[in-house]
Amino acid sequence: MATLNGLTEGDKIRVFSAGREIDGQGVFLRFQGNFLVWVDNHANINVTSLDTISISKIC
């Protein structure tokens, strides 16, 4: 399994925009270009621009 920026597919993450959590926690899938691809707690696949977010890995 590949690791990128300290994240590995399947890692639990929190995604923030303007300091506020977006849709709670989720699972990291991959980076695709300038986008984060992740699954939220409602099993929705999200593609979110890295220009407007920060990501926190949940240990």
Rank of each mutant, 00 (worst) to 15 (best):
M1K: 12
M1N: 12
A2N: 14
A2Q: 14
A2P: 15
T3C: 07
T3A: 07
L4T: 11
L4W: 06
L4Y: 08
L4C: 07
G6H: 04
G6Q: 03
L7E: 03
L7F: 14
L7I: 05
L7A: 03
T8G: 05
T8V: 08
E9Y: 03
G10Q: 05
D11H: 05
K12E: 14
I13A: 08
R14W: 02
V15F: 01
V15T: 07
V15D: 08
F16E: 04
S17A: 13
S17H: 08
S17F: 01
A18T: 10
G19C: 06
R20E: 13
R20Q: 09
R20S: 10
E21T: 12
I22R: 14
I22V: 15
D23H: 13
D23A: 12
D23R: 13
Q25I: 07
G26E: 04
G26T: 04
V27C: 00
V27A: 00
F28D: 00
F28H: 04
L29N: 10
L29A: 04
L29D: 13
R30Q: 12
R30I: 07
F31G: 11
Q32A: 08
Q32C: 01
Q32R: 06
G33S: 02
G33R: 00
F35Y: 15
F35S: 10
F35K: 13
F35D: 13
F35G: 00
L36V: 10
V37F: 02
V37H: 03
V37W: 01
V39Q: 15
D40I: 04
H42T: 13
A43M: 13
A43Q: 14
N44C: 05
N44Y: 05
N46C: 13
T48S: 06
S49D: 14
L50G: 01
L50K: 12
D51S: 13
D51R: 11
D51N: 15
D51I: 03
T52Y: 08
T52Q: 11
T52W: 08
I53C: 07
I53D: 03
I53S: 06
S54F: 02
S54W: 04
I55W: 06
I55R: 04
I55Y: 09
S56T: 11
S56K: 12
K57D: 07
I58V: 15
I58G: 00
C59T: 10
